[in-house]
């Protein structure tokens, strides 16, 4: 049960490393440039789906990027308050950056 965060685009080594260690018990919160990994028809979103991890995207960043309506159905948008709740729910956090 780890909360992972990723703020780098899917082309990055950070994304590759994150992908290797995600498990179905984990949650991944995407923020900054990390949000693009959840674009619904992208190769990265397929790779993330295979892990079984729960996917969260920071809403402020998704709105800025214009991708709120381009995200996959399995993605949950979160605001900053929900972000804090996630960190409370998961005892450990791993930041990929």
């Amino acid at each position: 049960m780890i909360l992972h965060t990723l703020n780098r685009a899917p082309d990055s080594a950070a994304f590759r490393d994150c992908l290797r260690f995600l498990t179905a018990d984990d949650a991944l919160l995407l923020l900054g440039d990390g949000i693009y990994a959840a674009l619904k028809d992208s190769s990265s979103s397929e790779e993330l789906a295979v892990t079984g991890a729960s996917l969260y995207v920071l809403e402020a960043d998704a709105s800025a990027a214009g991708i709120v309506n381009l995200l996959g159905n399995d993605v949950t948008l979160v605001d900053f308050a929900k972000f804090v709740e996630l960190t409370e729910h998961f005892p450990r956090q791993q930041a990929w950056h």
């Binding site: 402020a60 960043d61 709105s63 800025a64 990027a65 214009g66 991708i67």
Partner: peptide
Amino acid sequence: IPDQEPSGIGV
């Protein structure tokens, strides 16, 4: 990508 709305992140 169209429909960008970055006022929430202040840029």
